[in-house]
Design a protein around this nucleic acid. Structure first.
Length: 714
DNA sequence: TTAGGGTTAG
């Protein structure tokens, strides 16, 4: 039969959201006569189960025209339930409002509809309305009310509903119990989740899975395995979801062998065929366990790669410090028709900031804008990060200013950006602006602002923020904060005060804090304190190779070659190796990498010729090599030659040859830039009239017209 | 006549 929209009452037209002249056809089992109420009910039931919206809507139209709906609470309820299960809450609400005798079934369906479609507040309001109407709740009501509380993180309301569950006697219902566990997991209250779990009289597989995944989600992998053991002892078999949680737990504690066992179990039991998530979870587990070869093998074996598979691989390479492979895979994803989403671009930006791939980052930024991903807060924060870590602080600030809903992490990223660029005053001012905007600081942002003070030598400002931490922001100073303060005082030459602080601080100093003091001793040539602090570092962390090298450098600067040799022997005996100096620069979307003394690049001849030319011109301009940066007891001439092998100079020479005059050069170095390279770069910036932005392991240096933004304070 | 737990990111 066919139905013309002109027969519909205005309120029903609204339900169909269609114009009066639209034609809706309904054919069910080839019938041409009105269906009975029971037939309609049965059909609606099956359409509700399969969420077949179009057919259900046509059946609704058929029921209206046939007159069956008039005063038929049974059918109206069925139709409202159908719309609610399809997430069409506007239509469901219109019908719901028109039903006088509302059953628990109807209320439950409405509460469920709102809770499952991102309208938790509406769901809770309806639950309150249900109670005030005197309608009895049942065991079907609570799972969705608890779901809404959990998703909205409404802790107080959630607890109140829990009380109501107890009072109404549904605590022993297995579904209600499982929903309570899930809600407390969402609240990050694993202790309460566990109490509910332990008190359950009956548990099913979902109870066990919810508890295991709860622990996993909050990084408590060992507890997850304990519950898993209990589950097996209780005679339960795993399903695909159990395996996913366990794999995630393996990744968390880098238990690759255990992960491999689960992988084997899944293959033997054909889980991979049935569970579309399992492959991605396995890829993720291997990448968390730093086993990218295994992750890649799995990834390449999957015929149908979805966005999550690509994302796991791209993020995996970035996390495992293979940013180049991460970017290469992203390009392949685009070429093969993959669909990058917000998660993809965040991972790609993470790879870009590791190797200062600014041009690549900018291409990704334009893709982000085109797709509207910039509305996403995490994406915005990643952009702030990538621009500041690639040396473009102004772009960083633009993104920050345009962010509609800045949160604590966005502010932190910007404060930290100013810090690593040596813009301490801007960082402090932004921090205060953040506090004035009613954003409560956390440990992280205070660490960032203290670090910014340290890079810029803002001793008074840094100490003031440190003193106000507990009082004004209710943050107890932790190790990271003490470390920043030691660094701040030490760099500024207040070594005794820094030493006193370590001896009197409220938490036990770690090797990192002593290492910060040791580093300050190198800057200010204090051998005596260096020996005390290095001994502390070695006692606490015998593998601190950087501190051995730092001590050796301190002796070398004083020309105490016997001591230098003594430290070197210690390092050799322990089998430590200092990572080789390595610099990157980006050209035409490709990353060029240079190791110290590198002669493998195809332009090697031109690079060294350029360096010879620069050396000559620099000397004419008054440059005198500072060989104190060479910690070997060799002839001055050899020391000077060693300096000119440093990787950052090779990268600068390469960039000078391959870019047009006036172009800004950007270099990234894996270690701290040495004193002579810093000086040479200042000279080069003046002689070649180039701005050179160099990122070392600690911070940025902006070289321009013969001087550096750090003001030689670094 | 209705229900609960699963993979990727700052």
């Amino acid at each position: 039969m066919s139905l013309s929209g002109k027969f519909l009452r205005p309120q029903n037209r609204a339900l169909f959201n269609t114009s009066p002249c639209a034609t809706i056809r309904f054919r069910q089992h080839g019938c041409t006569h009105p269906l009975t109420s029971l037939q309609c009910g049965a059909t609606l039931q099956s359409l509700t189960n399969t969420k077949s919206f179009k057919q259900g809507q046509q059946l609704h139209a058929h029921i209206i025209v046939s007159g069956t709906l008039e005063d038929n609470t049974y059918l109206s309820t069925k139709i409202a339930a159908f719309y609610a299960s399809c997430g069409r809450m506007t239509q469901a609400q219109v019908l719901f409002d028109g039903i006088v005798l509302k059953s628990s079934f109807l209320w439950n369906f409405m509460i469920r509809g709102y809770a499952c479609n991102g309208l938790g507040m509406r769901s809770l309001a309806l639950y309150r309305e249900m109670l005030s109407f005197g309608q009895k709740t049942d065991n079907f009501t609570y799972p969705f009310v608890l779901k809404a509380c959990g998703e909205l993180l409404l802790v107080e309301i959630g607890r109140r509903v829990h009380c109501e569950v107890v009072v109404s006697g549904f605590e022993s219902d297995i579904y209600v119990g499982n929903s309570l566990i899930a809600m407390y997991v969402n609240f990050d209250d694993l202790a309460l989740a566990r109490i509910v779990f332990d008190r359950m009289l009956d548990r099913d597989l979902v109870s066990w899975n919810t508890m295991i995944s709860g622990y996993t989600k909050h990084g408590k992998a060992r507890e997850a395995f304990v519950v898993f053991d209990l589950m097996r002892k209780a005679g339960f078999n795993v399903d695909g979801r159990t395996l996913l949680s366990l794999l995630s737990a393996c990744g968390c504690i880098q238990a690759r062998n255990q992960g491999r066992e689960i992988h084997g179990y899944a293959v033997r039991n054909s889980y991979r065929i049935y569970n579309k998530f399992l492959n991605n979870s396995l890829i993720q587990m291997y990448s968390d366990c730093n086993s990218m070869v295994d992750a890649r093998r799995l990834f390449e074996g999957v015929q149908l790669k979805d966005t999550v598979s690509w994302n796991s691989m791209i993020a995996g390479y970035a996390r495992n410090e293979d940013a180049v492979e991460s970017l290469r895979l992203f390009c392949r994803m685009v070429m093969e028709g993959g669909r990058p989403d917000e998660v993809t671009v965040v991972a790609v930006l993470g790879a870009c900031d590791q190797i200062t791939a600014l041009q690549f980052g900018m291409v990704v930024h334009s893709h982000i804008v085109k797709k509207g991903f910039n509305e996403n807060n995490i994406v915005g924060t990643s952009l702030i990060d990538v621009y500041s870590k690639c040396g473009s602080l102004a772009c960083s600030r633009n993104v920050f200013d345009e962010m509609p809903n800045k949160n604590l992490v966005s502010w932190s990223a910007m404060v930290s950006g100013y810090g690593i660029h040596g813009k301490g005053r801007e960082a402090v001012s932004l921090f205060h602006e953040m506090v004035a905007s009613d954003i409560t600081p956390d440990e992280g942002v205070v660490t960032s602002v203290l670090s910014a003070c340290s890079h810029a030598g803002l001793v008074i400002e840094g100490k003031e923020i440190f003193d106000r931490m507990a009082k004004d922001y209710n943050i107890k100073p932790g190790l990271a904060h003490y470390s920043c303060l030691v660094d701040l005082l030490g760099r500024a030459g207040q070594l005794d005060e820094a030493y006193k602080l370590i001896k009197t601080m409220e938490v036990n100093p770690t090797s990192d804090i002593w290492a910060a003091l040791l580093s300050a001793c190198r800057l200010h040539h204090n051998v005596e304190l260096a020996e005390i602090s290095s001994q502390k570092v070695f006692d606490m962390n015998p593998k601190a190779v950087g501190s051995y090298i730092c001590l050796s450098n301190i002796y070398a600067a004083e020309k105490r070659w016997d001591d230098v040799e003594r430290v070197r022997v210690m390092v050799r005996r322990k089998g430590f190796k200092k990572p080789p100096g390595c610099s990157f620069t980006e050209l035409d979307n490709a990353i060029h990498r240079f190791l110290v003394g590198d002669r493998t690049h195809e332009q090697t001849y031109y690079i060294y010729t350029k360096l010879d030319d620069l050396k000559q011109r620099l000397k004419e301009a008054g440059y005198k090599p500072d060989t104190s940066s060479v910690y070997y007891d060799v002839e001055e001439e050899i020391k000077e030659k060693l300096l000119w092998d440093h990787s950052e100079r090779l990268a600068i020479a390469f960039a000078l040859i391959n870019t047009s005059p006036g172009t800004t050069i950007r270099i990234t170095k894996n270690l701290r830039v040495c004193g002579d390279c810093h000086n040479v770069t200042k000279f080069i910036s003046k002689l070649t009239r180039r701005d050179i932005i160099m990122r070392d392991i600690h911070r940025f240096h902006h070289f321009s017209d013969g001087s550096c933004s750090c003001g030689d304070y670094w």
